[in-house]
Each structure stands twice: as structure tokens, then as C-alpha cells.
């Protein structure tokens, strides 16, 4: 497990997730993730990767067991406070989930608008983030005018703009060609170096091997291995 000390940013304690009687998505998950880690979660489709991530950003609740975020029990967060909770976590999805009728700039700024940031703050912060993901020149383009890799970088910019402590990426390279995938992973590594914890779910062997950091392998909803400097096993 992690060698770092302090409060884990995420702690799963005997978590089970059952969707229906004959479908156990997650079984007895015990897991600690420390601030600043880069964790790859691997496994076949249906191994429980997405379920695990949905628990983290509170789209789903554990059926039994507890999940702590910075020491706080996530399942106790009231529904009306979920939006505030989610602003601590940046989400990146396989299908980008951009708003199709907003430009790159607007897609990123929306995340700040919902938090009630002033226009001045927005004008100041967005260019910085867009520079980080190397999209300054495409700020006025719409998602359908961008390549897949570029769209994914927009969604990473949007995830970053709150300065979240944690970024959760669910198969971010699933829809991308190999060279775009490498780009995205390098970007995530760079963000991690700046101090943000990253959880990356993927079933792409090359990516996991390139990252070469902590790898947690899921199979049938169970953690079957958890290795620092891991490799893709299955």
C-alpha cells in the first residue's frame, strides 16, 4: 500500500455495491489513496471500475460499508450539498461530456459560473487553464469542431478549473487513437506533478505501463492486486 503518512484523500472501508440481487458490482473493497498519488484502476469491462468511480463522486452510494473523502463520510452528504462536494473533484469521462452548444471557453467557464465566480475571475482563470492543456488558440471553437483528443483536453481543463484536490478519469482514452491517448496521459501526469491526486480507470495496457505508478486491478468487483509501480496484469 501507500508509504505516505497523513489522512488519506479517499478511504474505502468494506464497501459493497449491489445493483440487483444477482449483480454485485463491488465486493468488500478496502482501499486507501493518499493525497498526491496517481492511481490506475484496471480491469476488464464490467470488473467494477466505473462503479468504483461513481461512488467517489457520489453519483452512487455504497450498499454497505463506508467511503471517506478527506475523512468525511460521503454517504452522509445531503443531496442539496452534493454540488458543493463535487466541486472538490474534477471528472473526466470517456465520452467527454461537453456541452455541445457552448464554445471551449464557455464549457470551461460554466464550471466556474455554477460556483458563482465573477466574470473578472473567469476571464482571468480560463486562459491559464487553457494554456495548460494547450488549447488557447481554440477557445472559440465548438466541441464538434475539435478532434477527440482536443475535446478530452477541454474536459480536463474543465475538471481542473476548480483547482480540485482529486481528478477522477473514467476511461479518458477509450475513444481516442494511440497518439492522442499518450497526449492525454502525459497531461494527467503533468497535473499530478503539480500536486493533484489522480485516479485513472482504464483497460488500456500501454497506458498503464507508460504511467508505471500504483495499479489496482479489479476482477468481478473485487480487488485482486494492488501494486506500487505496477504493470497491467490481466
Amino acid at each position: 500500500m501507500s508509504k505516505k503518512v497523513g489522512v488519506p484523500i479517499l478511504k474505502f472501508n468494506k464497501v459493497n455495491k449491489v445493483y440487483s440481487e444477482d449483480f454485485l458490482a463491488l465486493r468488500d473493497i478496502n482501499l486507501e489513496i493518499m493525497p498526491g498519488e496517481f492511481v490506475s484502476i484496471v480491469g476488464r469491462s464490467g470488473a467494477g471500475k466505473s462503479s468504483l468511480l461513481k461512488l467517489i463522486y457520489a453519483e452512487e452510494k455504497p450498499t454497505t460499508g463506508e467511503l471517506y473523502f478527506n475523512g468525511e463520510d460521503v454517504s452522509l452528504i445531503k443531496r442539496k450539498n452534493l454540488p458543493y462536494f463535487r466541486r472538490n473533484i474534477g471528472n473526466v469521462f470517456q465520452d467527454f461530456k461537453l456541452l455541445p452548444h457552448k464554445t471551449v471557453f464557455e464549457n470551461v467557464s460554466y464550471a466556474l459560473e455554477v460556483a458563482g465566480k465573477s466574470n473578472e475571475e473567469i476571464e482571468e482563470e480560463i486562459p491559464e487553464v487553457l494554456t495548460l492543456v494547450n488549447l488557447s488558440s481554440k477557445a472559440d471553437k465548438y466541441p464538434n469542431q475539435l478532434s477527440g483528443g482536443e475535446q478530452q483536453r477541454v474536459s480536463i481543463a474543465r475538471a481542473l478549473v476548480h483547482n480540485p484536490v482529486l481528478i477522477v478519469a473514467d476511461e479518458p482514452t477509450g475513444n481516442l487513437d494511440p497518439s492522442s491517448s499518450i497526449e492525454i496521459v502525459e497531461l494527467l501526469l503533468r497535473i499530478n506533478e503539480l500536486g493533484t491526486t489522480i485516479i485513472l480507470a482504464t483497460h488500456d495496457r500501454d497506458i498503464v505501463n507508460k504511467v508505471a505508478k500504483r495499479v489496482i486491478t479489479l476482477d468481478g468487483g473485487k480487488i485482486v492486486s494492488d501494486k506500487t509501480n505496477g504493470k497491467y496484469l490481466i
Binding site: Y57, K80, Y84, K97, L98, L99, V114
Partner: peptide
């Protein structure tokens, strides 16, 4: 509906 989902996931409150 997809847009509403995205809005919620980037931290927009229901009212917003």
C-alpha cells in the same frame, strides 16, 4: 437531458 447531467456533474446546483 444529457446537458442536465453534465451540468450536475460539474457541480451545478439543482436550482442553477
Amino acid at each position: 437531458q444529457k446537458e442536465f447531467e453534465v451540468m450536475r456533474l460539474v457541480g451545478a446546483s439543482n436550482m442553477y
